[in-house]
């Protein structure tokens, strides 16, 4: 065993505890006989020590609530999928949601469920409008500038209608929807295959948060963000990879628009 030739590779194996125990003494002897190798092994070991020390504190930090909430919150909630049986049921939920907002006298949504409620409303809007090609929009997407001005004025936000042509989606247009005592903007996109994407935005939001909200195993998925005074949910039934592309591109453009 001690006849074995050691190489640079063994330095890594030893460092990672992968060198068989019975080879260890021969390896140590090899290092002693090769000062350069020994110095290199020591430097690499130092680097590992540095790395470990650099992030050791992270594991000791108190856990952010937004992370523990993901694990805890859902434990106490019933599955959300049930109501997602047909568009009629979704529309009923949407009406109920709007009514609840009205009865609440326009109190800011707030609380833990703010993002989920936004996403819920966005999915209901998607089901009601985006899925009905004949009546999807009030203002067509042909005149983008006019559409953006109109939606911005009504919502009090600097809204842009993201260009998603690179992802194959054409802007059909937009509409204004009631959301509590405020107005929400809905943009509807469609690709050649007839798949829909909708973007739901309103001037509501208290603290920075984001999340994914699914309306059941097969229903559409909303990716939502909240920030001070702004809420956005992008809804689609696209497979995850393409969805992320659409969402990434749309969000970047929206963010740039808001920043002016």
């Amino acid at each position: 065993m001690s006849d074995r030739d050691f190489t640079e590779r063994d330095i890594h194996l030893a460092l990672d505890g992968e060198l068989p125990k019975d080879e260890r003494p021969a390896y140590e002897a090899w290092l002693e006989a090769n000062p350069e190798r020994k110095a290199r092994a020591a430097r690499l070991a130092d680097d590992v020590g540095l790395l470990r020390a650099a992030v050791a504190g992270v594991a000791e930090e108190p856990l952010p609530e937004r992370l523990t909430a993901v694990v805890k919150e859902r434990a106490s909630e019933p599955p959300r999928a049930v109501w997602w049986r047909n568009a009629a049921a979704a529309a009923a939920v949407f009406v109920a949601g709007a009514l609840a907002g009205y009865l609440a006298g326009g109190l800011p949504l707030g609380g833990e469920g703010e993002g989920e409620r936004l996403a819920d409303d966005a999915i209901a809007a998607y089901a009601t409008y985006a899925a009905d090609p004949a009546h999807a929009v009030e203002v067509a997407g042909g005149d983008r500038d006019y559409l953006q001005d109109w939606l911005s004025k009504r919502t009090g936000l600097r809204l842009v209608a993201p260009d998603l042509t690179a992802q194959g989606f054409e802007l059909l247009g937009g509409r204004i929807l009631p959301a509590g005592h405020k107005a929400a903007a809905l943009l509807v996109y469609r690709n050649k295959a007839g798949e829909q994407v909708s973007i739901y935005m309103m001037a509501e939001g208290r603290e920075k948060a984001r999340g994914t909200y699914a309306a059941g195993e097969t229903g559409p998925v909303a990716i939502w963000w909240l920030d001070q005074g702004f809420g956005c949910a992008i809804v689609s039934s696209l497979p995850e990879g393409r969805r992320d592309e659409v969402v990434g591109s749309a969000w970047r453009q929206i963010k740039e628009g808001l920043a002016g």
């Binding site: 790395l51 594991a59 930090e61 937004r66 992370l67 694990v71 994914t212």
Partner: peptide, 27 residues
């Protein structure tokens, strides 16, 4: 979660982006 955060932080450096990754993972 503590380990996932530590790994993500070292991977991405930025604390917010790291926690975003952990959140996606947990979801």
């Amino acid at each position: 979660i503590p380990r996932l955060r530590r790994y993500a932080r070292a991977l991405l450096r930025d604390a917010d982006r790291a926690d975003d990754l952990v959140q996606d993972c947990l979801e």
